[in-house]
Write a protein that binds this DNA or RNA. Sequence first.
DNA 1: CTAGGGTTAG
Length: 751
Amino acid sequence: MIGRSCFDKVIAAYRRVIRITSISYKRSHTITQLNGNSGSVRPLDFREGLSMIIEGTKIEAASYVPLLQECINRNSLSEVKIVHGHIIKTGTHQDPFVMTFLVNVYAKCGTMEEAKRVFYNLPRINAVAWTSLMTGYVQNSQPELAIHVFLDMLEAGAYPTNITLGTAINACSSMESSKLGNQIHAYIVKYRTEDDTSVGNSVCSLYSKCGSLGSAIKAFRRIREKNVISWTTVICACGENGEAFQGINFFVKMLSEGIEPNEFTLTSILSMCSTMLSLGVGLQVHSLSIKLGYESSLRIRNCVMYLYLRCGSIDEAQKLFDGMQRVSLVTWNAIIAGHAQMIEIAKDDLSAHHRGTEALKIFSKLNRSGMKPDLYTFSSVLTVCSRLVALEQGEQTHAQILKTGFLSDVVVGTALVNMYNKCGSIERGSKAFVEMSMRTLISWTSMITGFANHGHSQQALDLFEDMLLAGVRPNQITFVGVLSACSNAGMVHEALNYFEMMQKDYKIRPVPDHFECLIDMFVRLGRLEEALDFIKKMDFEPNEVIWSLLVGGCRRHGNMELGFYAAEQLLKLKPKDPDNYLMLLGMYLSAERWEDVSRVKNLMKEEKISKIQYWSWIGIKDQVYSFKPNDRLHPQSAEIYKLLDELLDRAESLGYKSQECFELIDEDDEEQTFSSTVYHSEKLAVAFGMLNTLNVAPILVIKSTPMCRDCHNFIKVVSSETGRQIIVRDSKRIHKFVNGHCSCGDFGFGL
DNA sequence: CTAGGGTTAG
């Protein structure tokens, strides 16, 4: 980074020179045009050219250009060096045109050191050469250096062309320095080159990057002869500034004026369709791009695939992916992220789980393909691991990240912290957090929430105070973590304090999530009247979660009158969460209110509540094993039940009493019946885990519905009897069983 | 001269 005084120097120098040279634009322009004309030399085929070079045959100077161009397309620095060597051998390094082009070539290959060396050895340095070096620095994310070159150029007495000015503006755009940009723009206006197409394009882009769409559109309007780049720039400006719809309008106008979009235009429009989730428009653009001959364009294919993913048509996306012969890393990343995103919105846990394992499969395919994953890949994969509670895969990914050096990236680091926390290892999560060299709001929030979910309330609150001391401003989500920490520990006083702090000090409006934490807290403490008071105080209607918390609390604390009232409210909302139907059925059943039981069942049919699936699953190595209640399909069934019966006996001798717990069982395909069962799916999965993992390894089980009280008691005893850590993540929270205790404080199970 | 597509907390 260079200081502001340097910019002032640039401006001062620029001011000096532009006064003397303002008349000479025309002349510089001709130089460009002359250089742009490569004459009537027959272009060489790449292979032909390269073999001539290897044989040492002399080739014409102008033939080097298409040859080098092909090297760029193939992104092959080694081939560039071969050609460069030949240029020197044949004495063509005296040719200013070829050598200037070589500056571009090295810049495009990302090696600015080489580009600089060629530049300083040029036989003659003209405006095009200066501009090439500047462009190189802008492209390689060193805009400050581009401005330095600009200054050198002016001091050397060279005349900036329109393209030079445009490049200087581009450097300002990358630095997001509207100040310097404005200054240069002022001179552009003064010397009336504003209506020039390439200058105007750059100015339009500058204002878009600086966040003023209005100025960007004005700059666009002032361009006399708008080309496809001008249109693309203004369309992108709309997209970048959250006005995708306006961008589409510009696109339509562009088409009606007979300007043909190119690959850039099409990809920009397609990604805007993705953000707007307008699959229909996007597909029309896709067929337009096929008509225009871009059917095999990888970039357009990536965009269309991403469009499908965003709009939830994952199968279409997968089909497109499978049909692509050539893919880029972005293609892989998009399909992995797409599957990861589908985990959230999947209809049921089993299909969500399927999405996740699919994503991990694609990731290992990517690794086998020889392409190197990057920080985007790793962030997505870690997210998938955390959602699947796939600790082993997460550890492997962690190792791979260490090897490839992406751990220094703050997003990857945050995803890693989150993965360990979600997979039950708060120790490694907090270790990874401490080791981060930089933390964002999201990192802090993730760790606070991690502590809260693991029942480490005090640590969550301490960390929150650290965060404030570090000068990071909490947001709504941070406070959800803080309040849930208070709620889990029953810290009423602290909860109310933080709730007030959030509103008064940080001006954050409470959302339902915040109230849910508070109401949950009062309900757990059996302070049902206070919970009800709080509900009355909210400035929005109580939602499904809030009523269901109240119903659950009333059942637990035996306040049936309030319980039935809350249940009525819940029924009125026609809940979406299958767990709530289960809870209501349980309540009415134990109260022997048969009419209400059938009322709930009818509502379930009416609302098309999918069958409640009591699946549990466990991942061992790369395989995932799933279990239904009383599952006997598994090949190891005999061993599983034998171990389970042994454990039940041992537990009973220690005072564990099996309790009747109800789950809805699928007896035939049509009807769900209510029945009690000892062999709940989580018991089976835990036993299976014991049989198939090392004695020291923690057992990780996921369950699609809340754990019941019986399984919770049983697994507590098992954890102390066997000395194994057992982690069950159910649909509500994480339960970490260690030495007979659960991190949820025994308030976190279902019925 | 446009420089596009993919990531983290709930």
